[in-house]
Nucleic acid binder design. Structure first.
Lengths: 336, 336
DNA sequence: TTGTAAGCGTTATCAC
DNA sequence: GTGATAACGCTTACAA
């Protein structure tokens, strides 16, 4: 049976109030009292009960980070930085992965879940803008969106300029003399913002270069995984004329694509150049090293957490859109 | 101002007790009552307050997973599986990374931290066995250790047989005809269990094969990272005679080591074979693909969570040691 | 500066 | 099966 504030107060012969002051406030308490209380705490091995404190104050000191899959390198790097940023501000982080389960996302966001012991949510959504807007009213917790764009000013969000990021990547391939540039990750049938924006950037870059779009060069990939990158690249390489470059919407796709190129007996970058997005560390050690658009997870995490904490303290804040910088890291996989 | 149980009770003209029954218990309540209560809940948009429930029941429905670094592929894969296993049992997971901060580990374990809103801890320790045993009495929360071995029966833990795992890897290299087998990750100066056990396995395999140990072939690597793998492999390759195989204590080290071999103008596996531990997905797509000891994170997570939940329900349980299976995945990097 | 007491929103004990 | 009511352990007016 753990000791309570009351026990400590009794032991030290002081009021509960005083003990509480010593434990959390440290204000207005004489050094003598303080010492006596501290001694009693030590003797009884007292630890404050966080649940009671939470009930009283309405604060848990915990943030939720919701990502599709924690073991995708981009998300685990983001999680690393979010945990750090949260720690700097006195918060802990609960991580949940929604897989591809929209219901789970919805339950988390609308509070339809019993164990919501956190003060705010950092959310890297799988749901679409439309769905999110639709449950708008039901969202009852401070919320900052990650990685998406254009939520009509309703929610805070921090994201990169996906259109420009894709455009930069493809423009780089064009500058390297590639003309038959394929894309993996374009999802014409899905209404998610990120793939659509990257597709737009891809197309814009081709247009600027006066290269005609070939519909069979732009392929979807359900999971942005190595396996999908491999499979889709394989079909791309069977095309005639064969692409001389593949722009992948994620580095994981790119790792799979590169492997497919080699397994087809071809070379990266000589036969096919490959460019990704995310700049995960894996791409700095792969053979060849991977040219990629770097996303600065530390900046994103810092901004998102900082914004979320602000919003927890003041729910009336106006929604803000923060654009994180991106930059192309040119490495071996795009040639020269 | 969110609605409370009381508000619902008033609205539905029933007792608070009845509402509570409907919300959580569902026992002993007539269908008519149930409907009335449900209607009131709907109208008032009532959501139970998890903090109040936690205070009352003593349960948060949350587990803590403590790892050194969440963005290390092995740990993020483990986190993925832990989150799944916990979800299956109705728990959420709070993830914290201790970096290389012993104080942070200690605070977490001994409850010296204010916001401990969880029911138990899954702990992949950085602290040594001695340190852990020393704070034994101060550990006041159900605890399951991951990845370590031999805690003298004081704590539950699930781990692989590190000695055998290392032995298997090295024996495989021997079977492939390698004789000058180096190791990266051996930490003679650090008292952590894992590196020492793997070092023991490495040495045992050499001994079995009648190969003489060369002290300069067994190198430490502070962080089990790609960067350290690269740096240490570089010094290894400068040795004379040059090793014809490198056994890395983690796949990340192995990725760095492979890159170092190529940058030295040599080939894997022809000049130098490389074997790792962890079997991360990256190694199935790298060039060459990486031979590695697979650790079955799903099994580890399942066992650990299951054990932790048992212990939460019954703190008197005797400590148990669960050994997870491992198996060598032979791929291109070890030749033939 | 310190003491008393009233909640925070549940669950659970007790009668009925 | 349902209705009052007392905890759970803390924070914080309010009083002294």
């Amino acid at each position: 049976m753990p000791a309570t504030l009351r026990d400590v107060a009794a032991r030290a012969n002081v009021a509960v109030r005083t003990v509480s002051n010593v434990v959390s406030g440290y204000t207005h308490v004489s050094e003598q009292m303080r010492q006596r209380v501290l001694a009693a705490i030590e003797e009884l091995d007292y630890r404050p009960n966080p649940a009671a404190r939470t009930l009283k104050t309405g604060r848990t000191g915990m943030l939720a980070l919701i990502v599709p899959e924690i073991d995708v390198p981009y998300f685990s790097a983001l999680a690393r930085d979010v945990i750090r940023a949260a720690d700097d501000r006195g918060y802990r982080v609960m991580i949940d992965q929604t897989g591809h389960d929209h219901d789970r996302e919805r339950d988390l966001l609308t509070g339809n879940d019993r164990r919501m012991l956190f003060d705010g949510i950092l959310f890297s959504p799988l749901v679409t803008q439309a769905e999110l807007l639709e449950m708008d009213a039901a969202v009852r917790m401070p919320l900052v969106l990650l990685g998406e764009h254009e939520f009509q000013g309703r929610f805070d969000h921090v994201a990169i300029d996906n259109v420009r990021a894709a455009e930069d990547a493809v423009a780089h391939l064009v500058a390297r003399g590639r003309r038959r540039i394929a894309a993996i990750g374009a999802q014409p049938l899905e209404p998610y913002a990120t793939p659509q924006q990257r597709t737009a950037g891809y197309e814009r870059a081709l247009e600027s270069a006066g290269i005609e779009r070939r519909p069979d060069y732009a392929r979807p990939a359900a999971h942005y995984s190595r396996a999908d990158g491999y499979a889709v690249a394989k079909t791309l390489l069977a095309l005639s004329p064969r692409p001389d470059a593949i722009f992948c919407f994620s580095d994981l796709l790119a790792m799979g694509a590169m492997r497919a190129v080699f397994d087809a007996g071809l070379t990266v970058p000589d036969d096919v150049a490959v460019v990704g997005i995310d700049d995960i560390e894996e791409g700095r050690y792969s053979r060849p090293t991977l040219t990629s658009v770097s996303l600065d997870t530390a900046f994103i995490a810092e901004q998102a957490v900082s914004r979320l904490v602000e919003r927890i303290d003041d729910d009336a804040l106006e929604a803000e859109q923060i654009i994180a910088p991106h930059s192309l890291m040119v490495r071996e996989s795009s040639g020269d």
